[in-house]
Simulated assay, not measured.
Amino acid sequence: MPPLLDPDSVVSALRAAGCVFAEDEAELILSAARTPDEVTAMVDRRVSGLPLEHVLGWAEFHGLRVSVEPGVFVPRRRTEFLVDQAVALAGEVSLIVDLCCGSGAVGAALAAALGRPELHAADIDPAAVRCARRNVEPFGGVVHQGDLYGALPGTLRGRVDVLAANVPYVPTDEVGLLPAEARDHEPRTALDGGVDGLDILRRVAEEAPRWLAPGGSVLVETSEIQAPLAVETFARSGLIARLAVSDEWYANVVIGTRP
């Protein structure tokens, strides 16, 4: 492809590739690129199916520009509802944990909204850990690599005021039905939640009471179909469980509070 020199040619190339919001994407690419050759390279990557956020190197999330990179889960705008729910229920917050943190978007957004309390984040994926460090370290956050709670320092046990866990919740048999941007360019560990999509949620719920401070809460995003069982799972773990729903964002967040 020759260098793209004008907005109309960028829009045309993106539209031909099936980008629904070609005009908006073209504006973002043109504002990010420094040369015509860079515009062309970015359009080529987008046309090949790379998520726009990976092309740009960032995603907009809860008022922040969050760094992302190929191979890292792109934060979804609907997950802003989880952040809003955490902010709404939080009183005096001293300690936040972002499990399954991916890019660290949720932890960074919570830290920004809650006056920069102590922040820890964790993910099993080394690429996500590297990316998350860029996003949470400006807020004084620390990122750990490992499997769920096993990644966290033991000194956090019983002290966590807000525990956000944007766990994978797509049933294994449905991962193949996801849009190609997610299916082909995001880690399966960030998508696949097991047979019914709730495997990781169950593990988070089971151990949450041991990590939460009295009155602390854990928040997990799930689907509308999974929500009733997810609420029941939280309750069986000894948490006071409830469901928050946003019709606007088509988001469902299960909230469990330690008595």
Rank of each mutant, 00 (worst) to 15 (best):
E181A: 14
V68M: 12
M1N: 12
S9L: 10
A251I: 04
G154A: 15
I96Q: 04
N252L: 03
H120M: 02
V87S: 06
Y250K: 15
H144Y: 15
R65M: 13
E27N: 14
L152Y: 02
T257L: 10
E224A: 15
E80H: 05
H120I: 04
R15I: 02
L152P: 04
A132C: 12
R157N: 01
G63Q: 10
A108P: 08
E25G: 06
L212N: 04
A190E: 08
L56C: 02
V106F: 08
L201I: 07
T257K: 09
S67M: 08
A86D: 08
V39S: 07
Y169D: 01
R202N: 01
R116C: 03
V74L: 02
V195T: 15
V97S: 00
P126D: 10
V74Y: 02
V254D: 00
A182I: 08
I124T: 09
A108G: 06
V39F: 04
A108F: 07
R134P: 00
A122L: 03
G194M: 08
A122Y: 01
L52M: 12
A88G: 13
E232S: 15
R159A: 14
C100H: 10
V74E: 01
A227K: 14
L229D: 14
P259I: 12
V106Y: 09
V47A: 01
L28N: 09
E207P: 00
L56F: 04
F73Q: 05
L99N: 09
L219E: 08
M42E: 01
V129Y: 07
D196P: 07
D37V: 11
P214M: 11
A32K: 15
V47I: 11
L148I: 14
A165K: 05
L148W: 03
P51S: 01
P138G: 11
A208V: 04
P2I: 09
A235Y: 03
I29V: 14
P214H: 13
G102V: 04
A127N: 12
P3W: 04
M42F: 06
A213H: 02
V162S: 09
A41T: 11
L119G: 03
P168F: 00
V245P: 07
A165D: 07
G49N: 13
D192L: 10
G193C: 11
S237H: 04
D199S: 13
A111V: 05
R76V: 01
A32Q: 15
T189C: 14
L99I: 11
V253M: 05
V72L: 05
E232M: 06
L152N: 06
G154L: 15
Q85I: 03
G71A: 05
T79K: 11
D84N: 10
Q145S: 07
V11S: 05
P7C: 06
F61S: 09
S237R: 08
G18Q: 12
I255W: 01
E181I: 07
H54E: 14
R188N: 09
P138V: 03
L156G: 10
A128H: 08
A16P: 02
F73Y: 14
E38G: 10
P7I: 05
P2W: 11
E53M: 02
P51I: 00
